Simulated assay, not measured.
Amino acid sequence: MAEFVMAAGTWLGAWAWDEVVPELRAAGHGTHPLTLSGLADKQGVPAGQRTHVQDIVGEIERLDLRDVVLVGHSYAGIPVGQAAERIGDRLTRVVFVDSNVPADGESFVSAWPDGRAMVEGSIAEHNGFWAPLAAPDFAGQGLTDAQITRIVTGSTPHPGATLTEPAVLSRPLGELPATYVKCLLDGPEPNADVVELLKSEHWRLVEMHTGHWPMFSEPRELARILLGAAVEG
Rank of each mutant, 00 (worst) to 15 (best):
S122K: 01
M1S: 15
D41E: 12
S217H: 01
L70M: 07
E207T: 13
M118F: 11
A124R: 09
L12E: 03
P190K: 12
E232G: 08
G58D: 04
G105E: 11
G115E: 07
V168G: 06
A47E: 00
H73V: 04
I78M: 09
V97G: 09
L70S: 06
H32D: 05
P33L: 02
L143F: 11
D18A: 15
H158F: 06
L169I: 01
V152H: 08
G211R: 03
C183P: 05
A14V: 01
W130C: 03
A131W: 13
G228R: 05
A111Q: 14
E207K: 12
A134Y: 12
R204N: 12
M1F: 04
L63Q: 15
M6A: 11
H212S: 07
V45S: 09
E61M: 12
V101Y: 03
K42F: 12
T153A: 15
N100W: 07
R86Q: 15
E61T: 14
I78L: 03
V97C: 08
T164Q: 11
P188D: 15
P166I: 03
P157N: 11
A83D: 03
V195Q: 14
E120V: 01
E19W: 15
G121Q: 05
A229N: 07
C183M: 10
A14G: 06
W213M: 09
R50L: 08
P159N: 05
N191W: 14
P136K: 05
L205H: 02
A161T: 09
S107Q: 02
Q49S: 10
D186Y: 02
V53P: 00
A230M: 10
P188I: 12
P79D: 04
H52A: 00
A124P: 10
T210K: 02
E125M: 13
P166D: 13
A40E: 00
S122F: 04
L36F: 05
E218M: 09
V109A: 03
L173S: 07
H52L: 08
M208V: 08
L169K: 09
E59S: 12
H32A: 06
G13F: 09
V45Q: 10
L63G: 13
L198V: 10
P177F: 01
T210N: 12
G72F: 08
A229Q: 02
D67A: 12
E189G: 03
A103Y: 05
D137E: 07
G115H: 09
D55G: 03
A178W: 02
E23F: 13
V152N: 05
A146P: 11
E165V: 10
S37G: 06
A124N: 13
A40P: 05
K199M: 13
